[in-house]
Amino acid sequence: MEKKYFTRMGDGSMVYMTEEEIKADIQLGMEDAILRGKVDPLTEEETQKLYDIVTMSGIIVGVEPGMQVVSSNDSGSDKISTKCGIPVTRDVNAMIHERVLGADSVDIGNSDYNYKTVKGIAKREATILKQALRNTTMPLFYGAMPNLGFYTKPDGPVENWAVLLPEGRIKEALQAQEDAVVHAVNDITYVAKQMADVGADGFQLDTSGAAGDADFLAALLACEKITKNNPELKVEIGAAGEFVLGMHGKLKYDDQIIAGLYPHKQVKLVEKAGASIFGAVVNTNCNMSFPWNIARVITFIKACTDVAQIPVHANAGMGVNGIPMCENLPSDVSSRADKALIEIGKVDGL
C-alpha cells in the first residue's frame, strides 16, 4: 500500500495524503497564487523543499540553525486574559511574554481592539503601557485595528456603506468611506501621540484593510502622519488579507489604486508611508489541504519579501499564512508553516 503522510486541512481536521496527492496540491496552490497575484512561481528546488517540510518526520519541526527570526504580536499581551480567561493585568502579561515565553516583543492592546474605542481611553491605555515599559526590556508596541466599520451609524458618525452599497446607493457609500478615513486617521494619530509620549517603541496598525481599501488607506495615511509627527514611534502595518478588498474601489495612495493589491504591492505602499515593518497576510482556505495552502502562501510571501525594502513579518496566527482556522492551533502544521515561511518565504519575522 502506498505510504500516506499525516497532514491537515485548512480547518485543522486531520487528513492522510500520498506523495502524489501532496505534490499535486502544492502545484495547484502555487498556481492559484500565480493566477491571482500575477507573481512568479516557486523554483523546483523550492517546491521540493516545501514537500520535504510538509512530510518531514516529527510532530514539531524547526528552522535550520542560524535562521531564527524575531516575532512581533497583535493583541499579544491581552490574549492570556481574553483567550485563556486568566485575569492578569496587561503589564504583567507583557512581563510573562518576556520572561516566560521568550517573546522578542509584544503589544499592549485593549480587548475592544480598535482605535475608535481606544481614543476615548487613550491616556489610560498609555498609563498601562508606561508601567509595562518600566518593567520590561524588550520593545513594546501599542496595538489595535483601524477598523473603519466602527465609524458607521449607529455607533459612529458616518452612514453605513455596508447597508448603502447593497441598496445601490453607491455615491453615498463612497462618500461615507472617505469621511470615515478622516475620522480614523485623526483617532489613530491621537492615540499614537499618547503612546509615543509614554515611550512606546512601536505602534501596531493591525488587520489594516479589514473593512476594505478605505481601511487600508486610513492605516497608510495615519502611518505617514505618525512617522512625521512622532518619529520616535515606529510603525508596523499588518494586513487583513491577501488582497485589499475594493469596498470603495477608486481610492489611491501614491497614485496607486489600493483595491486589489496583493502583498508584494501592498508592501511598497507600506514602505512609502514610512512603516518599519509590514505584516503580510495570506488567507487560509479551510476547504483545502495544508500542502495546497502553504504552497499558495509561500508563493505570495516570497514575491513580497523579494521586493520589500523593509522587514516583513508573516502573520502566523489562526486562519492565515497556512495556519489552520481553529482556536487551539496544532503545532505539527503550525511549525511547518513557520519553517516554510522563514526558509522559503524569507520572512524577517513572525
Partner: peptide
Amino acid sequence: MGGARTAGDMVMRLQLDKK
C-alpha cells in the same frame, strides 16, 4: 528568536529603528 533569553529583543529593536 528567544527574546531576552538570547538577543531577539535587540534584533527586533534594529528592525524597528533602522528598518
